[in-house]
Design a protein around this nucleic acid. Structure first.
Length: 416
RNA sequence: GGAGGGAUGGCCGAGCGGUCAAUGGCAGCAGACUGUAAAUCUGCCGACUUAUGUCUACGAAGGUUCGAAUCCUUCUCCCUCCA
Protein backbone atom coordinates (compact mmCIF):
# COMPACT_ATOMS: atom_id res chain seq x y z
CA UNK A 1 0.00 0.00 0.00
CA UNK A 2 1.20 3.47 -0.82
CA UNK A 3 2.34 5.47 2.17
CA UNK A 4 0.88 8.88 2.61
CA UNK A 5 2.51 11.59 4.65
CA UNK A 6 -0.50 13.16 6.25
CA UNK A 7 -2.38 11.55 9.10
CA UNK A 8 -5.60 12.42 7.36
CA UNK A 9 -5.01 10.58 4.12
CA UNK A 10 -3.16 7.82 5.88
CA UNK A 11 -6.12 7.19 8.13
CA UNK A 12 -8.84 7.51 5.53
CA UNK A 13 -7.17 5.15 3.11
CA UNK A 14 -6.16 2.59 5.73
CA UNK A 15 -9.70 2.47 7.06
CA UNK A 16 -11.28 1.98 3.70
CA UNK A 17 -12.90 5.36 3.13
CA UNK A 18 -11.26 6.10 -0.21
CA UNK A 19 -13.20 5.47 -3.34
CA UNK A 20 -12.16 8.30 -5.62
CA UNK A 21 -10.15 11.47 -5.11
CA UNK A 22 -9.51 14.30 -7.53
CA UNK A 23 -5.84 14.67 -6.64
CA UNK A 24 -4.74 12.52 -3.79
CA UNK A 25 -1.06 13.47 -3.80
CA UNK A 26 -1.75 17.17 -3.72
CA UNK A 27 -4.36 16.75 -1.03
CA UNK A 28 -1.94 14.67 1.00
CA UNK A 29 0.67 17.41 0.73
CA UNK A 30 -1.84 20.05 1.68
CA UNK A 31 -2.98 18.11 4.72
CA UNK A 32 0.62 17.79 5.83
CA UNK A 33 1.31 21.48 5.69
CA UNK A 34 -1.72 22.89 7.46
CA UNK A 35 -5.32 22.70 8.50
CA UNK A 36 -7.68 21.62 5.75
CA UNK A 37 -11.30 22.72 5.91
CA UNK A 38 -13.65 20.16 4.43
CA UNK A 39 -17.39 19.78 4.13
CA UNK A 40 -20.14 17.32 3.51
CA UNK A 41 -23.60 18.43 2.47
CA UNK A 42 -26.75 16.94 3.96
CA UNK A 43 -30.16 17.59 2.50
CA UNK A 44 -33.17 17.56 4.76
CA UNK A 45 -34.99 14.67 3.16
CA UNK A 46 -36.16 13.35 6.55
CA UNK A 47 -36.14 14.48 10.14
CA UNK A 48 -33.38 12.07 11.06
CA UNK A 49 -30.11 10.99 9.55
CA UNK A 50 -29.77 7.31 8.82
CA UNK A 51 -27.04 4.78 8.54
CA UNK A 52 -26.31 5.76 4.97
CA UNK A 53 -25.13 9.15 6.20
CA UNK A 54 -22.87 7.63 8.78
CA UNK A 55 -19.87 6.90 6.58
CA UNK A 56 -19.50 10.53 5.62
CA UNK A 57 -19.92 11.62 9.23
CA UNK A 58 -17.18 9.22 10.24
CA UNK A 59 -14.96 10.75 7.56
CA UNK A 60 -15.51 14.16 9.06
CA UNK A 61 -14.79 12.72 12.49
CA UNK A 62 -11.42 11.40 11.36
CA UNK A 63 -10.75 14.63 9.60
CA UNK A 64 -11.21 16.47 12.85
CA UNK A 65 -9.23 13.91 14.82
CA UNK A 66 -6.29 14.33 12.50
CA UNK A 67 -6.24 18.06 13.04
CA UNK A 68 -8.50 19.53 10.40
CA UNK A 69 -11.75 21.43 10.34
CA UNK A 70 -15.06 19.84 9.32
CA UNK A 71 -18.10 21.71 8.08
CA UNK A 72 -21.52 20.13 8.04
CA UNK A 73 -23.52 21.90 5.41
CA UNK A 74 -27.23 21.69 5.88
CA UNK A 75 -29.07 21.84 2.59
CA UNK A 76 -31.71 24.35 3.56
CA UNK A 77 -31.54 25.72 0.03
CA UNK A 78 -30.73 22.62 -2.01
CA UNK A 79 -33.48 20.57 -0.38
CA UNK A 80 -35.90 22.89 -2.12
CA UNK A 81 -34.49 21.69 -5.43
CA UNK A 82 -34.06 17.97 -4.80
CA UNK A 83 -31.01 15.99 -5.82
CA UNK A 84 -31.83 13.80 -8.81
CA UNK A 85 -28.81 11.54 -8.19
CA UNK A 86 -29.75 7.92 -7.97
CA UNK A 87 -33.44 8.63 -8.26
CA UNK A 88 -35.91 7.71 -10.92
CA UNK A 89 -38.48 10.15 -9.76
CA UNK A 90 -38.60 13.74 -8.73
CA UNK A 91 -38.50 14.18 -5.00
CA UNK A 92 -41.58 15.55 -3.37
CA UNK A 93 -41.11 19.22 -2.77
CA UNK A 94 -41.09 20.32 0.83
CA UNK A 95 -42.07 23.69 2.19
CA UNK A 96 -39.74 25.92 4.17
CA UNK A 97 -41.24 25.15 7.54
CA UNK A 98 -40.81 21.42 7.10
CA UNK A 99 -37.27 21.80 5.88
CA UNK A 100 -36.26 24.03 8.75
CA UNK A 101 -37.83 21.75 11.31
CA UNK A 102 -35.96 18.83 9.85
CA UNK A 103 -32.68 20.64 9.83
CA UNK A 104 -33.07 21.51 13.48
CA UNK A 105 -33.80 17.89 14.18
CA UNK A 106 -30.79 16.62 12.22
CA UNK A 107 -28.31 18.77 14.02
CA UNK A 108 -28.33 16.88 17.31
CA UNK A 109 -26.88 13.75 15.74
CA UNK A 110 -23.85 15.55 14.40
CA UNK A 111 -22.87 16.71 17.86
CA UNK A 112 -22.26 13.09 18.80
CA UNK A 113 -19.55 12.67 16.26
CA UNK A 114 -18.06 16.12 15.87
CA UNK A 115 -16.95 18.83 18.25
CA UNK A 116 -18.48 22.14 17.29
CA UNK A 117 -17.09 25.48 18.35
CA UNK A 118 -15.06 28.42 17.20
CA UNK A 119 -11.54 27.03 17.53
CA UNK A 120 -9.23 26.31 14.65
CA UNK A 121 -10.33 22.73 14.16
CA UNK A 122 -13.79 23.01 15.66
CA UNK A 123 -16.61 21.92 13.42
CA UNK A 124 -18.96 24.42 11.81
CA UNK A 125 -22.63 24.04 11.05
CA UNK A 126 -23.69 26.02 7.99
CA UNK A 127 -26.91 26.27 6.02
CA UNK A 128 -26.78 26.87 2.28
CA UNK A 129 -30.13 28.64 2.37
CA UNK A 130 -28.05 31.55 3.72
CA UNK A 131 -26.68 32.23 0.27
CA UNK A 132 -28.92 30.27 -2.09
CA UNK A 133 -32.22 31.81 -1.04
CA UNK A 134 -31.09 35.31 -1.91
CA UNK A 135 -29.58 34.55 -5.30
CA UNK A 136 -30.66 36.69 -8.17
CA UNK A 137 -31.43 34.80 -11.30
CA UNK A 138 -29.78 36.88 -13.98
CA UNK A 139 -26.57 37.71 -12.09
CA UNK A 140 -26.28 34.08 -11.03
CA UNK A 141 -26.67 32.82 -14.58
CA UNK A 142 -24.06 35.27 -15.79
CA UNK A 143 -21.52 34.64 -13.07
CA UNK A 144 -21.96 30.94 -12.46
CA UNK A 145 -24.23 29.52 -15.13
CA UNK A 146 -21.85 30.44 -17.93
CA UNK A 147 -19.27 28.05 -16.54
CA UNK A 148 -21.50 25.05 -16.98
CA UNK A 149 -22.05 23.52 -20.38
CA UNK A 150 -25.16 21.55 -21.10
CA UNK A 151 -22.98 19.11 -23.00
CA UNK A 152 -21.13 18.30 -19.84
CA UNK A 153 -24.18 18.23 -17.64
CA UNK A 154 -25.89 15.75 -19.91
CA UNK A 155 -23.06 13.32 -19.38
CA UNK A 156 -23.51 13.30 -15.61
CA UNK A 157 -24.82 10.01 -14.33
CA UNK A 158 -27.66 11.58 -12.43
CA UNK A 159 -28.95 13.17 -15.62
CA UNK A 160 -28.00 10.45 -18.05
CA UNK A 161 -29.73 7.69 -16.14
CA UNK A 162 -32.96 9.61 -15.97
CA UNK A 163 -32.90 10.29 -19.66
CA UNK A 164 -31.97 6.75 -20.58
CA UNK A 165 -34.78 5.34 -18.54
CA UNK A 166 -37.09 7.81 -20.13
CA UNK A 167 -38.01 9.26 -16.77
CA UNK A 168 -38.72 12.93 -16.60
CA UNK A 169 -36.10 15.27 -15.24
CA UNK A 170 -37.35 18.72 -14.47
CA UNK A 171 -35.40 21.86 -15.09
CA UNK A 172 -35.55 22.47 -11.37
CA UNK A 173 -33.67 19.27 -10.59
CA UNK A 174 -31.34 19.83 -13.49
CA UNK A 175 -30.05 22.85 -11.60
CA UNK A 176 -29.16 20.88 -8.49
CA UNK A 177 -25.58 20.18 -9.51
CA UNK A 178 -25.00 23.83 -10.31
CA UNK A 179 -26.12 24.85 -6.85
CA UNK A 180 -24.04 22.16 -5.19
CA UNK A 181 -21.06 23.33 -7.20
CA UNK A 182 -21.78 26.86 -6.16
CA UNK A 183 -21.99 25.80 -2.51
CA UNK A 184 -18.42 24.58 -2.68
CA UNK A 185 -17.20 27.88 -4.07
CA UNK A 186 -19.19 29.82 -1.51
CA UNK A 187 -17.73 27.75 1.32
CA UNK A 188 -14.29 28.39 -0.07
CA UNK A 189 -14.92 32.11 -0.08
CA UNK A 190 -16.41 32.19 3.39
CA UNK A 191 -14.36 29.61 5.25
CA UNK A 192 -11.47 28.68 2.99
CA UNK A 193 -13.02 25.27 2.52
CA UNK A 194 -11.01 23.31 -0.05
CA UNK A 195 -12.29 19.78 0.25
CA UNK A 196 -15.66 18.17 -0.27
CA UNK A 197 -16.35 14.69 0.97
CA UNK A 198 -19.27 12.53 0.06
CA UNK A 199 -20.56 9.17 -1.06
CA UNK A 200 -19.56 7.83 -4.45
CA UNK A 201 -22.93 8.84 -5.83
CA UNK A 202 -21.95 12.44 -5.18
CA UNK A 203 -18.84 12.29 -7.35
CA UNK A 204 -20.44 14.04 -10.28
CA UNK A 205 -21.83 16.84 -8.20
CA UNK A 206 -18.54 17.25 -6.38
CA UNK A 207 -16.56 17.42 -9.61
CA UNK A 208 -18.77 20.24 -10.79
CA UNK A 209 -17.83 22.20 -7.69
CA UNK A 210 -14.14 21.50 -8.16
CA UNK A 211 -14.27 22.70 -11.76
CA UNK A 212 -16.24 25.75 -10.82
CA UNK A 213 -13.68 26.60 -8.14
CA UNK A 214 -10.89 26.59 -10.67
CA UNK A 215 -12.80 28.88 -12.98
CA UNK A 216 -14.39 31.30 -10.59
CA UNK A 217 -12.00 31.64 -7.68
CA UNK A 218 -8.90 30.19 -9.30
CA UNK A 219 -8.34 27.73 -6.49
CA UNK A 220 -7.62 24.04 -6.46
CA UNK A 221 -10.49 22.41 -4.67
CA UNK A 222 -10.48 18.73 -3.85
CA UNK A 223 -13.13 16.06 -3.99
CA UNK A 224 -12.97 12.82 -2.08
CA UNK A 225 -15.63 10.12 -2.09
CA UNK A 226 -16.15 6.99 -0.08
CA UNK A 227 -17.56 3.78 -1.48
CA UNK A 228 -21.26 3.13 -1.26
CA UNK A 229 -21.49 0.75 1.66
CA UNK A 230 -23.23 -2.50 0.93
CA UNK A 231 -23.22 -5.73 2.86
CA UNK A 232 -21.08 -8.52 1.47
CA UNK A 233 -24.18 -10.14 0.04
CA UNK A 234 -24.71 -7.01 -2.00
CA UNK A 235 -27.67 -5.55 -0.21
CA UNK A 236 -27.79 -1.85 0.35
CA UNK A 237 -27.05 -1.15 3.96
CA UNK A 238 -29.50 0.24 6.42
CA UNK A 239 -32.62 -1.66 5.58
CA UNK A 240 -34.08 -3.79 8.33
CA UNK A 241 -37.44 -5.18 9.28
CA UNK A 242 -38.49 -1.86 10.69
CA UNK A 243 -37.36 0.10 7.65
CA UNK A 244 -34.36 2.38 7.61
CA UNK A 245 -31.84 2.43 10.41
CA UNK A 246 -32.24 5.90 11.84
CA UNK A 247 -29.75 7.66 14.00
CA UNK A 248 -32.42 9.36 16.04
CA UNK A 249 -33.24 7.46 19.22
CA UNK A 250 -36.95 8.22 19.00
CA UNK A 251 -37.14 6.56 15.61
CA UNK A 252 -34.74 3.72 16.27
CA UNK A 253 -33.90 2.82 19.83
CA UNK A 254 -30.34 2.30 21.08
CA UNK A 255 -31.22 -1.34 21.65
CA UNK A 256 -32.36 -1.77 18.04
CA UNK A 257 -29.27 0.06 16.89
CA UNK A 258 -27.08 -2.25 18.90
CA UNK A 259 -28.89 -5.26 17.46
CA UNK A 260 -28.49 -3.92 13.96
CA UNK A 261 -24.72 -3.99 14.31
CA UNK A 262 -24.75 -7.20 16.31
CA UNK A 263 -26.39 -8.93 13.33
CA UNK A 264 -23.72 -7.87 10.85
CA UNK A 265 -22.78 -10.54 8.34
CA UNK A 266 -19.49 -12.32 9.00
CA UNK A 267 -17.80 -10.95 5.94
CA UNK A 268 -18.52 -7.36 6.86
CA UNK A 269 -17.26 -7.26 10.42
CA UNK A 270 -13.70 -6.14 9.72
CA UNK A 271 -14.71 -3.57 7.17
CA UNK A 272 -17.40 -2.14 9.42
CA UNK A 273 -15.09 -1.97 12.42
CA UNK A 274 -12.75 0.19 10.38
CA UNK A 275 -15.45 2.41 9.00
CA UNK A 276 -17.79 2.77 11.93
CA UNK A 277 -15.67 2.62 15.08
CA UNK A 278 -12.66 4.44 16.47
CA UNK A 279 -10.84 1.26 17.38
CA UNK A 280 -7.15 1.19 16.43
CA UNK A 281 -6.35 -0.83 13.34
CA UNK A 282 -4.19 -3.33 15.26
CA UNK A 283 -7.13 -4.16 17.47
CA UNK A 284 -9.37 -4.58 14.46
CA UNK A 285 -6.81 -6.82 12.80
CA UNK A 286 -6.95 -9.05 15.86
CA UNK A 287 -10.74 -9.20 15.86
CA UNK A 288 -10.83 -9.88 12.16
CA UNK A 289 -8.86 -13.06 12.65
CA UNK A 290 -11.61 -14.61 14.71
CA UNK A 291 -13.47 -17.36 12.93
CA UNK A 292 -16.55 -19.48 13.32
CA UNK A 293 -18.61 -18.82 16.39
CA UNK A 294 -15.86 -16.63 17.84
CA UNK A 295 -16.56 -13.95 15.32
CA UNK A 296 -19.59 -13.16 17.45
CA UNK A 297 -17.22 -11.54 19.90
CA UNK A 298 -16.05 -9.21 17.18
CA UNK A 299 -19.67 -8.39 16.37
CA UNK A 300 -20.33 -7.53 19.98
CA UNK A 301 -17.38 -5.16 19.97
CA UNK A 302 -18.64 -3.59 16.76
CA UNK A 303 -22.13 -3.19 18.17
CA UNK A 304 -20.93 -1.75 21.45
CA UNK A 305 -18.50 0.69 19.87
CA UNK A 306 -20.91 1.90 17.21
CA UNK A 307 -23.72 2.34 19.71
CA UNK A 308 -21.44 4.15 22.14
CA UNK A 309 -20.51 6.67 19.49
CA UNK A 310 -24.10 7.52 18.72
CA UNK A 311 -25.97 7.02 21.95
CA UNK A 312 -23.25 7.23 24.59
CA UNK A 313 -21.50 4.64 26.73
CA UNK A 314 -24.38 4.29 29.16
CA UNK A 315 -27.05 3.51 26.60
CA UNK A 316 -24.71 1.20 24.71
CA UNK A 317 -23.92 -0.78 27.83
CA UNK A 318 -27.60 -1.11 28.63
CA UNK A 319 -28.33 -2.30 25.14
CA UNK A 320 -25.52 -4.83 25.30
CA UNK A 321 -26.72 -6.04 28.65
CA UNK A 322 -30.28 -6.40 27.42
CA UNK A 323 -29.06 -8.34 24.42
CA UNK A 324 -26.92 -10.57 26.62
CA UNK A 325 -29.78 -11.34 28.99
CA UNK A 326 -32.26 -11.89 26.22
CA UNK A 327 -30.18 -14.00 23.90
CA UNK A 328 -27.64 -15.72 26.06
CA UNK A 329 -29.76 -16.38 29.11
CA UNK A 330 -33.20 -16.36 27.55
CA UNK A 331 -34.23 -13.79 30.12
CA UNK A 332 -35.56 -10.30 29.90
CA UNK A 333 -33.54 -7.16 29.41
CA UNK A 334 -34.60 -3.69 30.46
CA UNK A 335 -34.21 -2.16 27.02
CA UNK A 336 -36.70 -4.38 25.26
CA UNK A 337 -39.68 -2.58 23.77
CA UNK A 338 -42.44 -2.36 26.36
CA UNK A 339 -46.21 -2.07 26.26
CA UNK A 340 -48.29 -1.26 29.25
CA UNK A 341 -51.54 -3.06 29.86
CA UNK A 342 -53.84 -2.37 32.73
CA UNK A 343 -54.20 -5.10 35.32
CA UNK A 344 -57.97 -4.99 35.12
CA UNK A 345 -57.90 -5.59 31.41
CA UNK A 346 -55.63 -8.55 31.89
CA UNK A 347 -57.93 -9.99 34.51
CA UNK A 348 -60.56 -10.63 31.86
CA UNK A 349 -57.89 -11.87 29.51
CA UNK A 350 -56.57 -10.64 26.20
CA UNK A 351 -56.44 -12.82 23.10
CA UNK A 352 -52.88 -13.74 22.18
CA UNK A 353 -53.15 -12.25 18.69
CA UNK A 354 -54.23 -8.92 20.11
CA UNK A 355 -51.40 -8.86 22.58
CA UNK A 356 -48.77 -9.41 19.91
CA UNK A 357 -50.24 -6.65 17.80
CA UNK A 358 -50.32 -4.22 20.71
CA UNK A 359 -46.77 -5.06 21.65
CA UNK A 360 -45.66 -3.95 18.21
CA UNK A 361 -44.50 -7.40 17.17
CA UNK A 362 -47.08 -7.47 14.39
CA UNK A 363 -48.45 -4.58 12.39
CA UNK A 364 -51.99 -5.80 12.23
CA UNK A 365 -54.11 -8.32 14.02
CA UNK A 366 -54.05 -10.49 10.95
CA UNK A 367 -50.29 -10.47 10.87
CA UNK A 368 -50.23 -11.44 14.54
CA UNK A 369 -52.50 -14.35 13.79
CA UNK A 370 -50.31 -15.49 10.96
CA UNK A 371 -47.27 -15.22 13.17
CA UNK A 372 -48.89 -17.46 15.75
CA UNK A 373 -50.17 -19.93 13.16
CA UNK A 374 -46.73 -20.06 11.62
CA UNK A 375 -45.31 -21.10 14.95
CA UNK A 376 -43.12 -18.08 15.46
CA UNK A 377 -44.78 -16.69 18.52
CA UNK A 378 -43.79 -17.31 22.11
CA UNK A 379 -45.25 -16.18 25.41
CA UNK A 380 -42.75 -16.38 28.23
CA UNK A 381 -40.59 -18.51 25.95
CA UNK A 382 -43.38 -21.05 25.62
CA UNK A 383 -44.51 -21.62 22.08
CA UNK A 384 -47.97 -20.22 21.55
CA UNK A 385 -49.75 -22.06 18.78
CA UNK A 386 -53.31 -21.04 19.41
CA UNK A 387 -54.01 -17.51 18.25
CA UNK A 388 -57.22 -17.31 20.23
CA UNK A 389 -55.80 -18.40 23.55
CA UNK A 390 -56.52 -15.84 26.25
CA UNK A 391 -53.55 -14.43 28.01
CA UNK A 392 -54.50 -13.63 31.58
CA UNK A 393 -52.88 -12.53 34.77
CA UNK A 394 -51.65 -16.11 35.19
CA UNK A 395 -49.01 -15.45 32.56
CA UNK A 396 -47.42 -12.68 34.57
CA UNK A 397 -43.97 -13.55 35.85
CA UNK A 398 -42.18 -11.04 38.06
CA UNK A 399 -44.67 -8.38 37.02
CA UNK A 400 -44.20 -8.79 33.28
CA UNK A 401 -45.04 -11.02 30.34
CA UNK A 402 -42.36 -11.69 27.76
CA UNK A 403 -43.47 -11.95 24.15
CA UNK A 404 -41.27 -13.16 21.31
CA UNK A 405 -41.78 -13.09 17.57
CA UNK A 406 -39.17 -15.38 16.20
CA UNK A 407 -35.80 -15.60 17.83
CA UNK A 408 -34.78 -12.02 17.56
CA UNK A 409 -37.75 -9.82 18.23
CA UNK A 410 -38.93 -9.55 21.77
CA UNK A 411 -41.17 -7.28 23.75
CA UNK A 412 -42.38 -7.12 27.30
CA UNK A 413 -45.82 -6.40 28.64
CA UNK A 414 -45.90 -4.47 31.88
CA UNK A 415 -48.86 -4.15 34.17
CA UNK A 416 -50.11 -0.78 35.22
C1' G B 1 -51.38 21.12 -32.23
C1' G B 2 -52.03 15.80 -34.54
C1' A B 3 -51.61 10.25 -34.08
C1' G B 4 -50.75 6.20 -31.04
C1' G B 5 -49.33 3.65 -26.21
C1' G B 6 -49.57 3.43 -20.97
C1' A B 7 -51.00 4.11 -15.35
C1' U B 8 -52.09 -2.83 -11.35
C1' G B 9 -50.38 -4.55 -4.20
C1' G B 10 -43.50 -1.82 -0.80
C1' C B 11 -40.96 -2.40 -5.92
C1' C B 12 -40.84 -4.91 -10.82
C1' G B 13 -44.52 -7.11 -13.66
C1' A B 14 -48.81 -10.58 -15.60
C1' G B 15 -54.07 -10.40 -16.16
C1' C B 16 -57.84 -7.74 -20.74
C1' G B 17 -66.11 -9.23 -18.63
C1' G B 18 -67.40 -13.84 -14.05
C1' U B 19 -63.77 -19.03 -11.11
C1' C B 20 -59.41 -11.88 -9.22
C1' A B 21 -57.57 -9.80 -2.95
C1' A B 22 -55.46 -10.37 -8.56
C1' U B 23 -49.90 -15.45 -11.80
C1' G B 24 -44.64 -14.63 -11.30
C1' G B 25 -40.15 -12.30 -9.42
C1' C B 26 -37.76 -9.10 -5.73
C1' A B 27 -38.12 -7.24 -0.85
C1' G B 28 -40.22 -8.57 4.01
C1' C B 29 -41.87 -12.03 8.16
C1' A B 30 -41.81 -16.95 10.39
C1' G B 31 -40.05 -22.28 10.61
C1' A B 32 -35.88 -25.92 9.80
C1' C B 33 -30.34 -25.98 9.77
C1' U B 34 -26.70 -22.75 12.59
C1' G B 35 -23.17 -19.00 15.69
C1' U B 36 -28.57 -13.53 17.35
C1' A B 37 -24.03 -14.84 10.47
C1' A B 38 -24.44 -16.25 5.27
C1' A B 39 -26.34 -19.84 1.87
C1' U B 40 -30.29 -23.42 1.32
C1' C B 41 -35.16 -25.59 1.89
C1' U B 42 -40.48 -24.84 3.76
C1' G B 43 -44.65 -21.76 5.04
C1' C B 44 -46.82 -16.81 5.21
C1' C B 45 -47.23 -12.16 2.90
C1' G B 46 -54.57 -5.99 2.03
C1' A B 47 -57.72 -4.97 6.57
C1' C B 48 -61.44 -6.75 9.91
C1' U B 49 -61.98 -11.22 17.05
C1' U B 50 -60.76 -15.72 11.19
C1' A B 51 -65.84 -15.74 8.65
C1' U B 52 -67.43 -21.25 2.09
C1' G B 53 -68.33 -13.65 5.77
C1' U B 54 -67.60 -8.22 5.40
C1' C B 55 -64.86 -4.07 3.78
C1' U B 56 -61.09 -1.52 1.00
C1' A B 57 -58.01 -1.92 -3.49
C1' C B 58 -55.93 -2.46 -10.17
C1' G B 59 -54.54 6.58 -11.81
C1' A B 60 -59.65 9.86 -10.71
C1' A B 61 -64.93 10.51 -11.55
C1' G B 62 -69.12 8.74 -13.93
C1' G B 63 -71.63 4.88 -17.02
C1' U B 64 -72.91 -0.14 -19.46
C1' U B 65 -73.85 -5.05 -17.21
C1' C B 66 -76.99 -9.88 -13.07
C1' G B 67 -71.48 -9.15 -12.69
C1' A B 68 -65.80 -4.66 -14.40
C1' A B 69 -58.71 -4.47 -12.94
C1' U B 70 -60.88 -6.01 -17.62
C1' C B 71 -66.03 -2.59 -21.94
C1' C B 72 -67.70 2.93 -22.71
C1' U B 73 -67.29 8.45 -21.47
C1' U B 74 -64.76 12.46 -19.25
C1' C B 75 -60.55 14.04 -16.47
C1' U B 76 -55.32 13.82 -14.52
C1' C B 77 -50.40 12.26 -15.25
C1' C B 78 -46.55 9.76 -18.18
C1' C B 79 -44.25 7.78 -22.77
C1' U B 80 -43.46 7.38 -28.25
C1' C B 81 -43.90 9.31 -33.17
C1' C B 82 -45.29 13.52 -36.35
C1' A B 83 -45.65 19.11 -36.56
Amino acid sequence: MTQYRSDLIQTLTARGFLHQCTNLEALDAKATSGVVTAYVGYDATADSLHIGNLVSIMMLRWLQKTGHRPITLMGGGTTKIGDPSGRDETRVLQDDATINARIASLQTAFGRYLAYGTGKTDALMVNNADWLDGLQYIPFLRDIGRHFTINRMLTMDSVKLRLEREQPLTFLEFNYMILQGYDFVELYRRFGCTLQLGGSDQWGNIIQGVDLGRRVVDAELFGFTCPLITTSSGAKMGKTAAGAVWLKAERFSPYDYYQFWRNTEDGDVGRFLKLFTDLPLEEIARLEKLEGAEINDAKKVLALEATTLLHGAEAAKDAAETARKTFEQGGIGDDLPTVEISATELKTGIPAWSLFQRAGLAESNGEARRLIRGGGAKVNDQKCDDENVMVTADAVVDGVIKLSAGKKRHAIVKLT
